[in-house]
């Protein structure tokens, strides 16, 4: 596929010798949103965590098969270096409670011990907050703790923090599942806006959300990739019976 950012080949993952991902092969095109969807326990969160190797935090996690980021083997890279190239946004907003908004945005630099001139970091903070659609709301409170923000604002702050590292791909692990409908709509608009310049991989258990904002969709069921293709096509003419049953709400 032209302009592929992330590619997996025969990828499997195991926890305690339980296989939770079975021979997944797919790829995410550049500057588009790819959604991973499926009922809970289907392995979508495991898959997204395997991309930046966060699954390794769980003891006895194993993988087999290949995964490439821009044609580089993810599993032969240093996890630390890999994670700096891949941004991640979690289910629950998790800004650093001891840092102000400014430092939260450049936390990836600060915590990694990267020093830079003030102008430079100012520029990164402003640009990242603007990309995350938060600049106008917080530009006067940059030096206040981020914890007074609403849940939706906090989540956008976390997106800004990930964007500040200029990641090759942004992983969104059910980014709206802890938010109210209004904040959810706001984040969804933001994702659509961001995809002009940013490749994203979105995990969602919300079928409608996948339909609204993704360009490609992968449907996972019991650790298997059942179907992968352009969202529109999958939602209108699903190839697999299980995909159809899921989309029509027969299970899940």
């Amino acid at each position: 596929m032209e302009g592929t950012i992330l590619r997996t080949e025969d990828f499997s993952a195991y926890y305690n010798n339980n296989q939770v991902l079975k021979n997944i092969t797919f790829s995410t095109p550049k500057n588009l949103v790819t959604a991973l969807m499926g009922p809970s326990g289907c392995g979508k969160t495991t898959l997204i965590r395997c991309v930046n190797r966060m699954h390794e935090l769980i003891p006895d996690a194993k993988v087999s098969g290949k995964m490439y980021l821009m044609d580089k083997d993810i599993y032969s890279m240093e996890p630390i270096v890999l994670r700096r190239k891949i941004g991640m946004v979690f289910q629950k907003p998790n800004p650093f409670p001891t840092m102000n908004i400014y430092n939260n945005v450049i936390a990836g630099y600060k915590l990694n011990g990267i020093k830079m001139p003030r102008d430079n970091s100012d520029a990164i903070v402003e640009q990242s907050l603007k990309s995350a659609g938060l600049w106008n709301e917080v530009k006067d409170f940059l030096y206040r703790k981020g914890t007074f923000l609403s849940g939706g604002q906090q989540q956008r702050l976390c997106i800004a923090r990930a964007l500040a590292m200029k990641p090759e791909i942004l992983l969104l692990d059910e980014p709206t599942s802890a938010l109210d409908p209004k904040s959810t709509a706001h984040i969804e608009e933001l994702i659509v806006e961001l995809k002009k310049t940013q490749t994203m991989l979105l995990v969602t258990h919300n079928i409608a959300q996948a339909a609204r904002i993704s360009d490609y969709t992968a449907f996972l069921y019991l650790g298997e990739l059942i179907e992968f293709g352009p969202t529109e096509k999958m939602f209108t003419v699903p190839k697999d019976r299980r995909t159809e049953e899921y989309l029509t709400g027969k299970f899940g």
């Binding site: 930046n52 966060m54 630390i80 990836g108």
Partner: peptide, 28 residues
């Protein structure tokens, strides 16, 4: 909360720095 540790590690921050610069300050 565990998600603070995750947030830091996902930014590519090494484990020891995550403990010293994120977890310890939060528990100071």
């Amino acid at each position: 909360p565990y998600n603070l540790k995750e947030a830091s590690l996902a930014l590519g921050v090494p484990y020891y720095r995550t403990i010293l610069k994120v977890i310890l300050p939060a528990g100071i």
